[in-house]
Nucleic acid binder design. Structure first.
Lengths: 161, 161
DNA sequence: AAAGATTGACGATTCAATCTTA
DNA sequence: TAAGATTGAATCGTCAATCTTT
């Protein structure tokens, strides 16, 4: 196909799949062990924490986390069961539902976030130079946009340092 | 923690997770649509195709694919059911089991591989320059090794071009 | 006793169908 | 009729226990 052969392309594919898998598994283990919540729960709490008023529509949340609607419904069932979020009917459009962070959910996130940051540092950023990180972020963002995704992340407060 | 704030680290994390998810989903869809097999099946067939005599121990295969042993057992159940592989007791150590590519499995792989290559090109390499690809592969390999993984991939024949 | 693989019970995710509201 | 969300059935993966062979 191209004059470099396909092996090189496949190598990049394999590296991407394997790196992501390994990194996510290790960070997930550490978060579960040290903060007592699954990575998926942290993702939800984090998104809500950085959202205005600590709430988001189910649909928004599903998109942000790359989950199907029903997948998010089930995930939120479990987190609500644990008391970290509640559902609230959306006032402006009563078809919609807000997932809202509770007091306890907020507390839990504040407890888990440092563990998560440390895990990301440990498995990801500690092994790459600033230049490598910047290059990788640029490349990954290109890939996301080229594939119809939207690299969205509500700015955490720490960014403003 | 560091003077760049944690937001930057988290951005890289999110970009990695999202890019991998989007890319894998798109390639998986295309493979399923155009070749009629799930991505996980292709992974197994590909590994076997590039292994000596078209066979591998279950354990090896599980490691290569980042799957648990039982996960691979189940996956191989389905693929064997479809007639693309068979199991054979390992002669030298009768505890072990070989997954062996069948004629039909080999045929199916030869049909699916071009689709897979095209999909990788479409979702991944088409959007990155040679330099970007090389930089990314280096960085990802570092990450894999730093996290106790092993970036292993039997050389495809095409590599020797 | 330990290694390789499988099985049962379970958790998490998806698709298709359903329910409610716009 | 369509959009937002949920539910039932099915798929896929994991952990712990089991079975066989070393």
């Amino acid at each position: 196909m191209n004059h470099h052969g396909q092996g090189s392309n496949v190598r990049l594919w394999v590296a991407l799949m394997q790196a992501q898998g390994t990194i996510a598994a290790r960070a997930s283990d550490r978060l579960e062990r040290e903060a007592g919540i699954p990575l998926a729960w942290h993702d939800v709490l984090a998104r809500l924490s950085f959202a205005p008023e600590g709430k988001m529509r189910m649909q928004e949340l599903a998109d942000a986390l790359n989950l199907s609607r029903s997948g998010l419904t089930r995930l939120c069932d479990r987190i609500e069961q644990a008391g970290l979020i509640v559902r609230a009917s959306c006032p402006s459009d009563r078809r919609g539902v807000h997932a809202v962070l509770t007091e306890e959910g907020s507390r839990k996130f504040n407890e888990a976030a440092p563990v998560f940051y440390a895990a990301v540092e440990e498995v990801l950023t500690a092994h790459l130079s600033e230049r490598e990180q910047a290059a990788m972020r640029r490349a990954l963002t290109k890939l996301i946009e080229a594939n119809g995704g939207h690299m969205c992340w509500s700015l955490p407060v720490e960014e403003a340092v």
